[in-house]
Write a protein that binds this DNA or RNA. Sequence first.
DNA 1: CCAAAAGTGTTTATAGTACACCCATGC
DNA 2: GCATGGGTGTACTATAAACACTTTTGG
Lengths: 229, 229
Amino acid sequence: MYQYQYPHPAVTVDCIIFGFDGQNLKVMLVQRKSEPFAKMWALPGAFVNEDESLESCAERVLMKEGNISGVYLEQLFTFGTPSRDPRERVISVAYMGLVKTADFELIAGNDELQIEWRDVEQVGDLAFDHNDILATAIQRIRGKIRYQPIGFELLDSKFTLPQLQQLYEAILGQSLDRRNFRKKLLSMQILKQLSEKQQNVAHKAAFYYEFDRERYEVLMKEGIYLELV
Amino acid sequence: MYQYQYPHPAVTVDCIIFGFDGQNLKVMLVQRKSEPFAKMWALPGAFVNEDESLESCAERVLMKEGNISGVYLEQLFTFGTPSRDPRERVISVAYMGLVKTADFELIAGNDELQIEWRDVEQVGDLAFDHNDILATAIQRIRGKIRYQPIGFELLDSKFTLPQLQQLYEAILGQSLDRRNFRKKLLSMQILKQLSEKQQNVAHKAAFYYEFDRERYEVLMKEGIYLELV
DNA sequence: CCAAAAGTGTTTATAGTACACCCATGC
DNA sequence: GCATGGGTGTACTATAAACACTTTTGG
């Protein structure tokens, strides 16, 4: 038993993990085994341990659900409505993660019946206030992808420009002009073209590119403001 | 005594309240009466009550320190490094507030020796990790003022364009061209010019303007993206 | 040779930037 | 009449937006 002089809320970290399958933006969901909200789908999360930072807690969740580490993570928002959990006062710090789905091995935790990637447009009613959390995350990724090179976190390290454009279109929910998209992305010089091309495609093969992180860091140090789309 | 089966951290809300004195951007600081960090300056804050939302807690802090309500508040970030408070694990949800200093009556709380507006450039060492929190807030306001009409929250409802420009220059830490600044702000049509002018100034009197909130909301509904500076 | 998707340039419109002089007011 | 700060317009540059045809590949 843990005793305190004043009431202390429980604190969890809930994770919105976005992935991309080449067509649509996906989010990782788990199906709860126990009450409250048994059998409902929810965002993966964990209670924060006593000596663990919030970010480490998010990393622990990723390790638990998919045996993965070292991915892009950012704090999203903290949800603290007193009634958001029927058991007790629970404050949830939400983290947004961007991963390559291929690197992830989905492993349902002990409290979970299933785990899966779900299209962000086909998420039904989630447990707790997780629909609100997801909505906040979608808003964040839509805003951020325009001026920070976070899209690359969702693709393999080698990707074609049409794949990158498809990702932007899926996230923004609108189509973009191919010529203008290429012109803009290439003009910032944060992409390295490889000599390698796509193989076995029934049309002209696209070149692969890589994100040039060093070049990007140089631009950031110079205080250059990117507007990617 | 409050008992829990698992350890629960304490949760506080700390507030970064920005004000503007016509020249420089100010932040509200309180001087701590007791340990830890006795006599040091800190951001005003409070422990979150059991049945209070995070936002209500921030509002309570504002009411306590300055008997004010109904001001602009937004959640900034949650700071949760395990060692950030030497007493016990304390997670702090930071809120940023923008106020008109004239509306505020500074009232030192029971735990506080003093309370004052301090120039953001002249804040020394603060208690806890409050220098980090302040740095995050300055970054946020600098980013946000470029595309959201939050500057008006720091000025009287009637203001002149040179006053508004002075505010932008203070926040961004750079000077702006007067003609271009006026052109841009006026072109978005979110300012209403009043017939009234400045009085008793030893130079040409400037016209007063008001922020046109209804017009702004219409623009937002149309999905128009403003870039104010 | 056909279908499918990749690659490519130019023109036009819009927005940003740089810059200097006259005007109104109080003392 | 002088010092102080308010108000204004134009030319130039850079960026954004619109738009159609040719190329490569597998089947």
